[in-house]
Structure formats: C-alpha cells, structure tokens
C-alpha cells in the first residue's frame, strides 16, 4: 500500500512535469477537466461500482462543493458589510481562504449531504434509488437558483488570481491541486477494494439479504459509501469556481457531470479502481478533442454511443474484458 501511494505520487509529478514542457497553457485547462473527472468517476464508483447503487446526482455533490466555495468567496469579499467592525480584522486575516481549505470544506459539506441522502434513500433499491438521487439534484439546483447571495440564476464571479508563486500560472496550481485529489481518490478506492470494507461493499452489491445473513451491517456500510463518495465529489467541485471564473447554476449542475461520472466507470470497468481511471482518460480525452475540433454539444452524443457499444461488447468494461480473458486462461 505505501508503495502504491508513492507510485501514484510519482506518476502525478511526472505528468505535471511533462505537461509543463511544451509550454502550452491550454494543456492545463484541458487536463484539469480530465483529472477532475478521474476524481468524480472514482467517487461515483465507490457507491455505484463497489456497492451497486447507481447515483444520478453526481452533479449535486459536485455543485455543493463549488457553491461552498462561491459562498465563502462572496463572504470574503463582503466581509466589511457582514461582520461587526471590531471582528473584521480577524476575518481579514483568514479570508480569502486558500483553495486547499476550500476543498476540505467542500468535502465536508458534500459528505454531510451524502450521509443525509444515504440515510433517507438507502432503503430504496435499484431504479428508485437512482431517481431519488436525480431528485436531489433538482431540489438543490432550485435552491441555488433562488439564493441571491451566491448569485441566484445569474451566477457569480470568482476572481482567479493571475499568478501562483513558484508555479507561474494559477491554472497550473489548480491543475496540481486536482492531481493531488485524483491521487487521494485512487489511493482511497484501491484501499477500500482490498480492505474488509471492500468485501462488505461487494457482498452488498451481489446480494443484500445474503450479506446481512453473513453478518454484514449493510445500512452502515452504505452510509459510509454515500458519505465518502459525496465528499470526494464535493472536493472535486470546490476549486471549480476558480477554474471557470464565473459559476452559473447551469454549469455547476450540468448534465455532463451526472452522465460522465456514470459512463466513465462503466466503460472502464466498475469492480476495480483502475476502471474509472481508464474510462476517464479514454472518454475525457475524446471529449476534449471533440470539443476543440467539432463542438462540445457532440459530447453527450458521444457518451451515448460509447455506452451502448460497451453494453453490447464489454458489459463489464475494459477491465472486465481483460479479467475475463485472464480467468479463462488460468482455468485451462
């Protein structure tokens, strides 16, 4: 395990260094989106792939992280009006909050909402659970649209500093942070897989009655999964307002978050941490290419076509296909 952590950190650093070489800033803009989806799809997979509970509300958890940041950034800008004069100097000391702190806060907020959602909906199974998560997304979007402090339907501007000391551009800093989050989620996912928790998740996915009869506390484990999954999605969303510069509800609650965070693990394979990573790199890169060459509107169509193709050719994703081959060979 420590070796794996070390290896992922090394890989992340190598990626970062390689990306700096050509000196093209756009690489970081495009790369950020892909790495962000590694976090989202890995987070989705902890609940969807390991436990078998399909979450259609990824956008809600992502947006919660993003809007936690917007709320705190707006609060920071309006400090002098919102805080008693005697207290203001202290607040000015800590605001604006650094992004790593915002990431932690976004994670906590989304984690709490994940826990609450789990508590309210986990007695639902299959399609009913999926629909409930979709409903959560709609409810939260409606709340945000009607909350003027964070800009309401008009959205809010978050000013991104131009430079980050030591790295040059701020975009590179954001990219590096997201890369760190990707390492964290992949390490967490892999740890879960090999732990007692992961076996419990697999038992839940396979047969909840049999899991209970074997002593697995299914409700508690599902709450752990919704909390972890929600928290990671919120962490992925927290830096987003700084990335995009202007956050509107439509972009934070975008359909593509829900769709991609499901499609990427399904294409890559859901039973193994590497599946979502492979799926994201494939689909994410393809989407970046079509966005540049054709139009971003093609992306959702692309996802649809790929999903159908995979359901037919490789229902267990790319990893499933490989595992199947290996198993067949071993048993010969």
């Amino acid at each position: 395990m420590p070796l794996f952590i070390l290896a992922s950190i090394v890989v992340a650093i190598v990626i970062f260094i390689l990306m700096r070489l050509p000196g093209i800033e756009y690489l970081f803009v495009a790369g950020y989106t892909i790495v962000q989806y590694i976090v989202l799809s890995t987070a989705w997979n902890i609940l969807g792939g390991y436990c078998g509970y399909v979450n259609f509300g990824s956008a809600a958890f992502f947006a919660l992280g993003a809007y936690s940041t917007v709320t705190l950034a707006t609060f920071g800008l309006q400090l002098d009006e919102l805080v008693p004069e005697s207290m203001a100097p202290y607040f000015h000391l800590i605001f604006p909050l650094p992004i790593p702190v915002l990431i932690v806060i976004g994670g906590i907020v989304s984690g709490i909402v994940g826990f609450g959602t789990g508590y309210l909906t986990l007695r639902l199974r299959g399609a009913f659970f999926a629909i409930a998560t979709l409903a959560l997304s709609v409810v939260l979007a409606t709340l945000v649209v009607n909350w003027d402090f964070v800009g309401g339907s008009g959205g809010a501007y978050v000013v991104r500093p131009g430079k980050f000391p030591g790295l040059g551009s701020y975009m590179q800093y954001l990219f590096l942070l997201m890369l760190g989050l990707a390492v964290l989620s992949v390490v967490l996912a892999r740890w879960i897989e090999r732990s007692r928790l992961g076996y419990g998740f697999a038992a839940i996915r396979d047969d909840e009655l049999a899991a209970e009869a074997s002593g697995v506390p299914t409700l508690r484990l599902k709450l752990i999964a919704t909390t972890l999954s929600g928290a990671l999605m919120g962490m992925a969303g927290a830096p987003f307002p700084y990335y995009i510069g202007y956050l509107a509800p439509a972009s934070a609650f975008g359909l593509e978050y829900a769709v991609n965070s499901i499609a990427m693990p399904l294409i890559g394979g859901t039973t193994n941490w590497i599946g979502p990573v492979i799926g994201t790199i494939l689909l994410g890169t393809l989407q970046q290419v079509t966005t540049v060459t054709i139009s971003s509107a093609v992306n959702v169509l692309l996802v649809g076509v790929l999903l159908i193709a995979f359901v037919i050719i490789a229902p267990n994703g790319i990893v499933g296909l490989v595992q199947e081959r290996l198993r067949a060979r071993r048993q010969k």
Partner: peptide, 17 residues
Amino acid sequence: PFPSLTLADNLRIPMLY
C-alpha cells in the same frame, strides 16, 4: 451466493464480518 466473488471470498465475508 455472492456471484462476483470467488468461492473462497464467498466464505471470507462471514469470517470478516
């Protein structure tokens, strides 16, 4: 049975939990 787990892992679940 737990269909996605090997036989050994099927038995591992009650042992672990």
